[in-house]
Amino acid sequence: MSVHSLEIRRSSASLLGGATGMRALPDVAKYVDTSTCIGCKACEVACQEWNDLAPVATHQVGTYQTLPTLDAGFWNLIRFDEREVDGGLKWLMRKDQCMHCAEPGCLEACPAPGAIVQYANGIVDVNPDNCIGCGYCETGCPFDVPRFSAKTGKMAKCTLCVDRVSVGLEPACIKACPTGCLHFGTKEDMVALGSARVAQLKANGFPQAALYDPQGVGGTGVVTVLGFGDHPEWYGLAANPHVPLGVKLWKNILRPIGLIAIFGALIGTVGHYFTYGKKEYREEA
């Protein structure tokens, strides 16, 4: 049996289990500073190269953005947004990818045991061995990240380069980033870095700067510095993301109730039989 550095903290559709806590690991996180992103797309292709993803089909539709949204073969997308703010032009760019939520909606929604796992360091990963390609995670994700791959019949998304991280390397996208707007380290350090940068931005013409680490999903494994923190939607980010209500209702209410109801119905028939027996024709006396 292999002994690996990463235990599983949570696993989809598993009734039991969880990290033993024998080995404590700090959470890791990516840091994305949108205020120094130049949208060069090095992260886009560094991701494809490391993960050996084939180029996807694209079309020139009048934008610098490679694709309208993420793709099963394109896990990391810079979103571009031109916008006039107070008479000045802003060209906002944000690296979009799996946010590695502390409370991952995809994992919540996933019905396949062990198909989506959260490692002890907080990385949320799809395990293709167990994934059944049902697409529930697409509904469960508050950031619209997982994508179904027709080629594999499985879901695909950013793995936070768990194969690199587990041997002590930073993710491929982080390493490539030319301007250093991407950074990698423990969540604690990334939050500290982000807070310092936000303070600097606030003092330098961005009074609304903020750190995006939404608590609705328990915080994310991607800590994003936004120059316009009061408008996360300008960057294509939800203002207050959370595990979708529908998924919660389904999983936490409907499913247990349903189980009880189905078993109730079964038990009811047995009770009925014990009480009333068969209804059958008897020879008329």
Binding site: M1, S2, V3, H4, E7, I8, S11, S14, L15, L16, G17, G18, A19, T20, P113, G114, V117, D125, N127, P128, D129, N130, V162, D163, S166
Partner: peptide
Amino acid sequence: TFVKAGTAGVGGAVALGFDLKEARAEM
């Protein structure tokens, strides 16, 4: 390696027909 299930509740799971062989994630 997935972490083994805690001992509590194993009996119940067995009764329901759960396969408790070690779950693994291929990376």
